[in-house]
Amino acid sequence: MQHLSEQSSVVKYKMVLIFLLGILVLIASFIASLSIGAYAISFADVLKLLFSPDEGKAASIIHTIRLPRALVGIIVGACLAIAGGIMQAITNNPLASPQVFGVNAGASLMVVAGVVLFPGLGSSTLVYFAFLGAAVGGAIVYSLSSTGGGMTPVKLALAGITVHLFLSSLIEGIVLFHETSTEDVLFWLAGGIDGRNWADVRLMIPWSLTGLIGALFLGKGLTILGLGDDVARGLGQKIGWIRASSAILVILLAGISVAVAGPIGFIGLIIPNIVRKLMGSDYRLVLPLSAVFGAALLTISDVLSRFISFPAESPVGIVTALLGAPFFLYLASKGGRAA
């Protein structure tokens, strides 16, 4: 008995340490994101101007351009990582993530269709298109991969990537017909956060907060679900209810991200896997930690994306893909089971 509580205090200690580490990385990348850009502002000035803005150009740049962009990055990263974590818990499958599940591509297709078919729509309406698309994409992949005796990593990945490719081709077709610019196609296939402003932050906050808080409440249920349906039922969990609310949360979290930033991939795949490796499968810890590390990873990727073809902007989705695809290979070479 004593042994057990000792162990749990070690776990707690470790958890706090990792959590602090995550916050530290996040803050560092956040400041880097505020400091690096075409307009040179020194490190010290960034910190000073962040808290006491003056009338100058530098302060304006930080407060109207870099800050909202960094915040969008943090929110999107957190949302995608949590969505990935929830999906991996529900399906008990390390490859599950908004991208592999067709949720990103579905939302993206609906937003592109909305923009093309109803040009006057504001972004607050397009969010609902994104939710619908996310739901449909996810539902298709879920039903495709769970036919014929349970969902294995292979079935999920094959179904997910196939649907992803289909939807991406349709997006490409729509964008090509609508406007022949390559940049548009790339944005809608890779996703980016350059040029995002306070309006986008305001749009995201209510939805992402709902998703975040919901995820915190869901943590316990998801952890117990991991012990198997029977055990969970024995412990008095309403399995159907957990699954349904998980689905809704995933749609909210991934949908709002895609509506604002396009289908940024791999964050939702990598982060929960790493966090689980560090922390074990207690989703009360995994989900909040995923949020922190997801936010940090997207912010770092965003900083890196500014160097690809400086001074021009490149979609951040390219960086997350370059980082994430090899990680996918690592998971895949373990048969999609480990980590």
Partner: peptide
Amino acid sequence: AIQSGDERYNKINLEQVVEF
């Protein structure tokens, strides 16, 4: 206003326009 850059056509954001 832009005397640099590898590419002739650059997607830039407001900050860069301000800088140039």
